[in-house]
Design a protein around this nucleic acid. Structure first.
Lengths: 338, 338
DNA sequence: TTGAAAGCGCTAACAA
DNA sequence: TTGTTAGCGCTTTCAA
């Protein structure tokens, strides 16, 4: 007796129990649930009534075996403790729940080996996945995407659907903001060189300063962490700029704190702008002006794309969906010193 | 042809393919993987070799159907965006991975209805669950626990295994610290009244001040959020105490910020202590002195208990495991004003 | 519209 | 130690 259940402790009712109760075939019960409309309304009613009475609940595992439909999606994030993901996860989860899917969140600790393992573990259970800032190579991503519908977040991989923040527009807003405060010479405290976001942000800054007749220089790269931000302080000061845009908020906050330790007044002497608008940006002193990425929307949109893709069974548009960012002006930016 | 796979696109190899390749029965292949040792070493070797060659991967869904073993655990948290959970989740995930389990994280948005839905959705897939700060009633928790091995976090439910922070000892440390700084009269900015942690923390403060011949008063309750902390500022100041311990870090940080807006110097005029040591406590100004809950350990321990329990198939000890907390002294506490 | 029957891929008694 | 066989609970073809 496999499963070791039918004995003693009454196991959960199955379609067989319901079928017997109503006096129809199990397949009819199955149909009544999985494709309503393909069964006589009256029969269906009796089936549902009996199911209700018996406390029947479909066993998703049993359903998944023949169909592959688990109603689960995975979201792989490089680091769950990174506040950057909070809203993204929440948005993704909301979108998944909306369509009766469960979201599996896998934390890969910024470690490619862990990432591979997590993927291997969850892949068989899920109908699709969204890769948040994956550390895998483009080709590795493509290998995954061949096995399950996949959407990548904040990165562009040729041939794979993706949803990204409109970094260019966001950076543009930041530069305009600084320009309007009288800053002419600004710096970019760069993040990991391998990062897609880093590349687009710096590129966008160059274009923006050009148009606005300002001047930009890049310092770094630095780790995308508080510590990285602290590291950036020296190099940034060395450039003599009056404002700096950091790769992300963590770097910006780290920078803020270090500048403070060095006795450099923010924003009086140097203005600082972050990127992403994570939790924490308004805890620090001064509060952080930052380019707010549409975090929740990113997660939500990615899941919707994924579900759409897996429904229509076709790769879908491969042109990245660009969600716009906006500037949140807080205390870390001010008029350029004279 | 159910499953709609066997056609065209070659579907993943199964134990049948491997069995045919090696010339043994499928059940032998099954055994070779699921209970090594119960098969001739040499046969096993040939099986593994062939499996490797064919790229065979066990289908966990198929395994789960007859056995109920999905190798998945669920962790239900009241709010994924609450920094309190970051390390807990990570600890839990690490412990799960250690034993080849996948952790499903479900965010229930502090909403009992969502919680019920999430539970309903994930329950059939998992072999056990840890309930992090569940909003459910004790009896609802017991209902769940009857269906799957369950461990509750930071809460004590009679008859259910749980792992909690040693709030009493933690609070004791905080009070001692304040006492040693010369504070004699302190306040507790309370959290939700329904919260188990809130009750034990306040209770512990009363005992500690009693022993140390200090004086304590309780203000609140306040929502366990930044906003709640801001709300607490007025009432706290009204008490005339020189130090306050907040229900948690979020409240403490909110309080810190509001005090600052009100022109009250921290720690010169009032010392503030938080609870939990979440990310953010060292971003604020001044940095936050806090009782550090063993977050990662909590998650880790909970999962280990769970796995143990589900292995031995017996409810296990129902006495809460108490993990100790320690005080992190930072900038928000200082000598009592004279 | 419904029923019978054959799987999905794996596990586990039981017998050999 | 291995093979045979009967499921796990559901879906889906095919025929009625």
């Amino acid at each position: 007796m496999p499963g070791g259940r039918r004995d003693g402790a009454r196991s959960a009712p199955t379609i067989y129990d319901v079928a017997a109760e109503v006096g129809v075939a199990p397949s009819t019960v199955s149909r009544a649930f999985s494709r309503p409309g393909r069964v006589n309304v009256e029969t269906a009613a009796r089936i549902h009534e009996a199911a209700e009475r018996l406390g029947y609940r479909a066993n998703p595992l049993a359903r998944a075996l023949p169909t592959g439909r688990t109603s689960m999606l995975a979201m792989v994030v490089s680091d769950v403790t990174n506040p950057f993901y909070f809203q993204i996860i929440r948005g993704a989860e909301a979108a998944a729940n909306e369509q009766d899917f469960t979201l599996l969140v896998a934390d890969v600790l910024e470690d490619p080996a862990v990432e591979r393992l997590a993927l291997e573990r969850s892949l068989p259970f899920v109908e699709g996945l969204v890769l948040g800032t994956s550390r895998m190579s483009d080709s590795a991503v493509r290998v995954i995407a061949r096995q399950r519908p996949t959407v990548v977040l904040n990165r562009v991989v040729a041939g794979i659907p993706s949803v990204v923040t409109d970094n260019a527009k966001g950076m543009r807003r930041a530069v305009e903001h600084l320009g309007s405060l009288g800053h002419r010479s600004i710096a970019y405290a760069a993040g990991p060189e391998a990062s897609w976001a880093d590349g687009t942000r710096w590129q966008a800054m160059r274009e923006a300063v050009h148009e606005l007749e300002m001047h930009a220089q890049r310092v770094g790269p630095f780790p995308p962490t508080l510590a990285g931000g602290a590291l950036a302080a020296g190099p940034v000061l060395a450039t003599g700029v009056t404002a700096v845009v950091a790769y992300n908020d963590l770097v910006a906050i780290g920078l803020l704190r270090r500048l403070r330790e060095l006795g450099v007044a923010v924003p009086e002497q140097v203005s600082v702008v972050g990127f992403d608008d994570i939790f924490g940006g308004e805890l620090c002193t001064p509060t952080l002006t930052t380019v707010a990425a549409p975090l929740a929307a990113l997660g939500q949109y990615a899941v919707r794309m994924l579900l759409h893709e897996s429904r229509v069974r076709t790769p879908g548009s491969t042109r990245p969906a660009r969600l716009s960012a906006h500037l949140v002006e807080r205390g870390s930016t001010g008029p350029a010193p004279t």
